[in-house]
Structure formats: structure tokens, C-alpha cells
Nucleic acid binder design. Structure first.
Length: 442
DNA sequence: TCTGGGGTCCTAGGACCC
DNA sequence: TCTGGGGTCCTAGGACCC
């Protein structure tokens, strides 16, 4: 806590949808929904026009479609969002060197790090307005909402109060009163489970929370959570704005259009995921010791299996081998809807391959054979690599009724666009798994 | 009409060590 | 012969965030 409202929280309004409306003028003023457009997709962002129909983030796309059938439904274009985000973050860094991005569309800014002191509420209001204007210019027309306060907690909550395109400055000294009438769920970290437990203790508002002793709170929600919640309730928050946060894990996961039971197919998919994880580790100059495989069953129960190596690796073959072994240990009876592969216990880059052989498993690497599933599908099966002259390389995602659904791998956004073809479409051709996907030595 | 993908942090039990 | 105490690492699961 400080004596002046020098922490800013900036939140771009309906970011993904706003970028799409910026790039496609015909969508402006109309409901736009960005997210997964497949059978099991969920909404990432709904434009304000779509929110009028009750469309919300994290809602299934199917439900969104039933609520707002005439909206434009778009898959995400992360590369474009990333570029826009970088331009916006640059404007923030021009204001202060201490900027902490929370995601592509959110960041904290610490004005005190810019040497600006003696700030009045009006000063902060003016700074926020100038920043908003700069962001709109740099992003090609997007708007942002800004909250300012004496801590991250207050700034974050304030930015939500006058969305979109608003500024809320909470004066120093008014924080506890500002929070008191709000629901406990405004406090970041209080989700449905915690809210439920608190409500059983008679706590619904922050004012209720302020009355509860720390001991009682710890009893209700656990040690770490209870202690921090007790302080946040009275707006005692001295968490610093931190510009460079270390990556702790890297992972890839996919939800399948239909549940998969076939172990060989899953092994092939795990292999592919291991390669993608390794590629991202390499780009970030990271390597890690713990490989985790995540499975989600048809009933949505989720399991993880992990294994820690003696030394860090970013070798796709090592990650793939461990992942396949973990997958063999996993129960997939009844089929799984999601598979994920991740690496954690990260270390800085290991220059050479010194440690990659430290994994004790010396069983030979078997070649994954994809199952033959011909029937009426002209030899196509899920997981198979294909090539299309217009769309490039992809792989079969789903199939049936004489049609195959293909995911194309673009630089833009894994997974790339999904397209459906007739099995006898002459443009679509099968490609072999590239040889480098399989290790040549052990 | 069921529930994405990328993360972070916390808890709890067991192994292991001194 | 009937039971330490603390610290660290590993594993699995869960809550939460955008």
C-alpha cells in the first residue's frame, strides 16, 4: 500500500473480438464471437454486441450459437493478437519501465517506477486518459479500460467498474470502504469453490469477510489462501509490480471432436505434442526435467501422470518417449476427450546434449504405427498427415460419412483452421509421417 | 447445448535423508 | 521393539485466472 494511486491496471475491451472488428469493417457494430468453432469449442471473447444476447467467455460455442445465431463465429488469430498486444504494451512501457503483462490484453503499470511522485487523483486520471488515447492510436482503434489505486488489488478491481472505455481512480485511504459492499468474488483468487465455502460461513460481501478472524478464515479455506484473503479483505496488499516473470511450465493440449480410445492413435498424437512442446522450449531457450501427460475422460474427470528425469531436456525424442510411457500407464478405458503433454521443472537452456541421455529408460523406441481404418473413408484415419495445394500441410482431425475434417498447421495459431473435404476430393493427398519424427539413435 | 488452452499456485502424502 | 522431527523432493489433484 502506498500513499498515492500509482498502480494502474489496463484491460483491453473485448480484445480478440475488437481486433477482428478492426480488421474487418463489416463486423463493426455487429455481434462477434471469437473462440473454438468446433463441436466442443468454447467462447474466448464476445464483442459487446454479442454480450447483449447473453454470450459470455468460457461458454460453450454451441450455447452461444443458440443464444445469438446471427453472430459471426471466428477462430482465434493469435499471431495478430500478439502483434497488437506488443504495440499496446510498448505504449505502457513508454509511460513507465515497470510493466507486468498478465496476458495479451491485460497489464499492471507502476507509475512510481517512472519517477513520477506527488500524484493527485486528477493527475492519475489525466495520465490514464492520455494512455488510453495512445493505446487506441497504437492499436488501430481499440479501446481500453483503466483502473488506478494504491495496490494491484484495487487497480484490478477498479478497471472492471466502468467497462468498456472507462477510467476509475480510487483515492488513497478509501480502499477498505471501496471494497466493503462488493461480493467476495471480486477478489481475484476467490472463485466458485471458495465463494461456496465462504457463504457457508455466512460470508458473501467483502464487509462480511472483514469481520472474520484470520484463524476462522484459515480454517475455512486453508493456510495460504486464508492468510492472503484476510489481508486483501482490508485492502492490505503490498505485492510489487514485477516486469519479468519466469516461465514455470510449457504445455500443449487438445480436446478431440470425439473421444479417442485407440492407444496407437493416442501415442501418435502424444508424439506430435511432444514435438510441439520441444519446439517451444527451444525457442524460449528452456529445458525441463518433469514430463507430464494429462488425460480427460468422457465424464470430464482429469488425470495427470508425470515423471522427472535426472537432468533437463528439450529433446523431442526424450519428451515423446517419456510421454508415451506415461500414457501407457494411464487409464483410457471408455475413451478420452483430451490429451496433453507438458514439461516443467524448467532450467535455463542446456547448451549441448550433455544431459539428454540421463533418462534411465533404455527400452527400445518402438515405431508408432497408425491404425488402418479404411472402410468407407478411402484410407483416411485420424492423425494422418495430408497435403492440400491451397491450404498446405495438415492432418486428419475427424472423419465419417464420406468426409474428412482436416486441421491445417499454420504459423498463426496451433491448432490452425479446420476444413472439411469429401474423401474423394482429388486435391487432398496423403503424406507420410516425416522420417525425422522418429529417432535414429538411442 | 455441456464444459478450450495456456498457465500459476497450493495441498497433501510418501519417500528419503540427517 | 511400538514409534522424533525437520527438510526436501516427487507425484497427483484441485482451484483459479485470462
Amino acid at each position: 500500500m502506498r500513499g498515492e494511486p500509482s498502480v494502474l491496471h489496463v484491460d483491453l475491451d473485448a480484445f480478440f473480438a475488437a481486433v477482428e472488428q478492426r480488421d474487418k469493417p463489416s463486423l463493426r457494430g455487429k455481434p462477434v464471437v471469437v473462440g473454438g468453432i468446433g463441436l466442443r469449442g468454447v467462447v474466448s471473447t464476445a464483442s459487446y454486441e454479442a454480450r447483449k444476447y447473453g454470450v459470455r467467455s468460457a461458454m460453450s460455442t454451441a450455447e452461444a450459437r443458440s443464444r445469438c445465431p446471427h453472430a459471426a463465429y471466428l477462430g482465434p488469430r493469435f499471431e495478430v493478437y500478439r502483434r497488437t498486444s506488443q504495440a499496446v504494451m510498448a505504449e505502457m512501457r513508454a509511460l513507465s519501465p515497470l510493466v507486468e503483462p498478465l496476458s495479451l490484453d491485460e497489464a499492471f503499470i507502476d507509475l512510481s517506477a517512472a519517477g513520477i511522485t506527488g500524484l493527485t487523483d486528477d493527475d492519475v486520471q489525466a495520465i490514464a486518459q492520455d494512455l488510453k488515447a495512445a493505446i487506441t492510436k497504437a492499436s488501430g482503434g481499440l479501446t481500453a479500460s483503466v483502473g488506478a489505486g494504491t495496490s494491484k488489488l484495487i487497480a484490478k478491481i477498479a478497471s472492471d467498474l466502468d467497462k468498456p472505455d472507462g477510467v476509475v481512480v480510487v483515492p488513497a485511504g478509501t480502499e477498505a470502504d471501496f471494497l466493503a459492499p462488493m461480493q467476495v468474488t471480486v477478489i481475484p483468487g476467490v472463485g466458485p469453490a471458495t465463494a461456496q465455502r465462504l457463504s457457508m460461513a455466512g460470508v458473501r460481501t467483502v464487509a462480511d469477510l472483514q469481520q472474520l478472524s484470520e484463524e476462522e478464515l484459515v480454517r475455512q479455506v486453508g493456510s495460504a489462501h486464508g492468510t492472503s484473503l484476510h489481508r486483501l479483505a482490508i485492502a492490505a496488499d503490498d505485492r510489487p509490480v514485477v516486469s519479468d516473470r519466469e516461465t514455470k511450465s510449457v504445455s500443449v493440449e487438445d480436446t478431440f471432436e470425439t473421444d479417442i480410445i485407440d492407444r496407437q492413435l493416442l501415442a501418435a498424437i502424444a508424439d506430435r505434442m511432444a514435438h510441439r512442446v520441444a519446439e517451444r522450449l527451444g525457442k524460449a531457450q528452456l529445458s525441463g526435467r518433469t514430463v507430464t501427460v494429462k488425460t480427460r475422460m468422457h465424464d470430464f474427470t482429469t488425470h495427470t501422470r508425470s515423471s522427472t528425469l535426472a537432468g533437463p531436456t528439450d529433446d523431442p525424442r526424450v519428451i515423446a518417449r517419456v510421454a508415451r510411457r506415461l500414457l501407457e500407464d494411464s487409464d483410457i478405458s471408455g475413451g478420452i476427450r483430451l490429451l496433453g503433454v507438458g514439461v516443467s521443472s524448467l532450467a535455463d537452456w542446456i547448451q549441448d546434449d550433455l544431459f539428454t541421455d540421463l533418462e534411465h529408460d533404455d527400452t527400445p523406441l518402438e515405431v508408432v504405427e497408425l491404425p488402418e481404418r479404411t472402410r468407407d473413408l478411402a484410407g483416411y484415419y485420424p492423425g494422418q498427415d495430408v497435403v492440400h495445394p491451397d491450404h498446405g500441410r495438415g492432418w486428419v482431425w475427424g472423419s465419417g460419412l464420406g468426409r474428412v475434417t482436416v486441421r491445417f498447421e499454420t504459423a498463426d495459431s496451433p491448432p490452425g483452421p479446420v476444413r472439411t473435404f469429401a474423401v474423394d476430393d482429388p486435391a487432398l493427398s496423403k503424406a507420410l509421417l516425416s522420417p525425422e519424427d522418429e529417432p535414429t539413435d538411442t
